[in-house]
Design a protein around this nucleic acid. Sequence first.
DNA 1: AAGCGGGTGCAACAAATGTTAATGCCTATC
DNA 2: GATAGGCATTAACATTTGTTGCACCCGCTT
Lengths: 239, 239
Amino acid sequence: MLESLYLNLGQHDALSDAEKALLAGAMTFERHFATGQDIVASGSRPTYSTLILDGLAARYKVLENGGRQFTSLQVPGDFVDLHAFLLKTMDHGIVALSPCHVMFADHARLRAITEQAPHLTRLLWLDTLVDGAIHREWIVAMGRRSKTSHLAHLVCELFVRLQVVQRTNGMSFHLPLSQAEMADVLGLSVVHMNRVIGALRKVGVVSWANHTVTILDWHKLREIAEFDPTYLSMTREPR
Amino acid sequence: MLESLYLNLGQHDALSDAEKALLAGAMTFERHFATGQDIVASGSRPTYSTLILDGLAARYKVLENGGRQFTSLQVPGDFVDLHAFLLKTMDHGIVALSPCHVMFADHARLRAITEQAPHLTRLLWLDTLVDGAIHREWIVAMGRRSKTSHLAHLVCELFVRLQVVQRTNGMSFHLPLSQAEMADVLGLSVVHMNRVIGALRKVGVVSWANHTVTILDWHKLREIAEFDPTYLSMTREPR
DNA sequence: AAGCGGGTGCAACAAATGTTAATGCCTATC
DNA sequence: GATAGGCATTAACATTTGTTGCACCCGCTT
């Protein structure tokens, strides 16, 4: 059941059986969310953190004018709100972008892990640090990349992250977002999002239909994106 | 000497004298950096983390076309690269935006803190989580705010953060960035950066000259920015 | 079968933003 | 006190991005 979490945390450093047991012990109940449902509400003060077992979710904020911006995409094996364990108050919401199967980790038990299991604590901390590294990469993409490059970068990132948790199929992966939702990821209008996807298609690096993205030319895609996966910390070393 | 760090960490939860001593004990030597110097190089694998005692620094990435994007601004009391303690490899550089006085915390001693001082460990973890929260707010600003609102939001954020570490002077603070550097924060051209600063001046909410920003109308500025400081976690509560 | 709704795709035009270039004001330096 | 360089500011023009509106397709319901 927690295989994705073990794959996710275990990509950075070895995870012992005892540590896996501690993680499993922190888990409480499971739940399913339908597409579009809020998994965590902005402003709430959760007493548990949410692990995605299956499905795709996103963090988002909404402005007064109604504009929505996604600040991250979360794949299976990700804690969507591990930060709330210490930040306490959610300053953003989390929405299910597909049917989501999740499991809740109790904050009191996470706290016990920080008291008794330093190495596992560091791995959980690291998980949130990688989150931050992804945020920084998104900031760079939004500020200084062309929109085509930004989208290419996102495709590279998602492919690599999904590969870690074994959610890719050859060079394809499932991406259930509508173009309107993609626009809220890149910070564009729907019309322009459509243009940018068209541009990536036109140069022949991806096919994109029926919510399935297939990378046709990884080398060229990576070049357009200037994608360097260093920020994902995928090397296994002592932490 | 470490007063800014204590103020920064202590804003989220009480910091005991024993914890202050542990932090002080993790520190090694100090150093000064001149404006424009790299404090940490991209791609390096530091064995210590850098605390800013005084001055302003920024994280940045540079793209192949020469474009630079700052991903954060760091004020006194901030660890600029605490994440490198666990991420190991720097995927971005850190540059001094003013003369910087810094002090280095040894990673081996930070690791000892994670083994022996769970509460302090959580506070350090929290510090990196607030970093992430700021990143998310920047993503929203870049994606969905008007440029004027983005700049207003940045001014609000910097004012509040500098106030915590007692670097404000009434409603003014020192901001040593040139407009070209500001453009690399907001992801704009220099010319447009100038237009946006002009727009904020024109509505009379700030004066901005000689690297000094003065907030003339906090209420209105906050309104333009839709600034809500929740994401900075400035409430003191058990963590 | 007809109608509805959501999503994609596209065209025409409007607005925002980038580029290039010029001007003027400082300050450091010789 | 002359000069050069960095920076802020503005203008004119080019490019990118947003807005509005519509056509089309597909799955679903009536």
